[in-house]
């Protein structure tokens, strides 16, 4: 059982890293710093709901650490860590209150938290409070991208649990579907 879990985590980490790096090449038409698709959150959410919160944290940390070394920027690391960890904590809290069919909600709040974390990091790093002005825009984008990534994660979790029952997925108590 343990080996399978390590292997699964490794695959998910590799996936998260690849997505993270590829996503940096995608330009978005919004002139606000920190706006991104947040596709690697799909992996985090999947790990959270399908494997375990601890595994999700592990994969997230590796993605943040290694991904930013590859990107080669320290400020990127700080922003990534701030956004990613706040996102994780938010998602972890909501995890207790959500079913598998509400993962998209988790995605929305996770994305919002990610944006908020990044803004705080930016204000801290540059010591200019004016950056807070971007908060509404980041929240707005977070809702949109979070719904998208959350839905992707939701579909993956539901389908894969059915298709691969032999994989070391943790099962939450099955709730009545909403």
């Amino acid at each position: 059982m343990k080996t399978k879990r390590i292997a699964l985590d490794a695959v998910l980490t590799a996936l998260a890293l690849s997505v993270f790096i590829i996503e940096q090449q995608i330009p978005l038409p919004i002139p606000v710093p920190g706006v991104k698709l947040g596709l690697s959150n799909v992996v985090t959410l999947f790990a959270l709901f399908a494997v375990s919160p601890l595994d999700a944290l592990l994969i997230l940390s590796l993605r943040i650490g290694i991904g930013n070394v590859f990107a080669g920027s320290v400020t990127g690391l700080i922003f990534s860590a701030a956004g990613g960890l706040l996102c994780y904590v938010t998602e972890l809290i909501l995890y207790k209150f959500l079913t598998d069919r509400q993962i998209w909600v988790c995605g929305v709040f996770g994305a919002i938290a990610h944006g908020v974390g990044q803004i705080f990091a930016a204000v801290g790093v540059s010591a200019t409070a004016e950056i807070f002005i971007y908060l509404p825009v980041l929240i707005l984008c977070g809702i949109v991208t979070g719904a998208l990534t959350g839905s992707l994660a939701q579909v993956s979790v539901i389908k894969l649990k059915k298709v691969f029952p032999f994989l070391p997925f943790r099962r939450k108590k099955e709730e009545k579907q909403n």
Binding site: S61, N68, V69, S73
Partner: peptide
């Protein structure tokens, strides 16, 4: 040990990247 290693690895990398600090 297997659980600890990734975190140690990250810390080392973090320090390495930190040396790229710029002004």
């Amino acid at each position: 040990k297997k659980r600890l290693f990734p975190f140690v690895f990250i810390c080392v990398l973090f320090c390495a990247v930190l040396c790229g600090c710029t002004r």
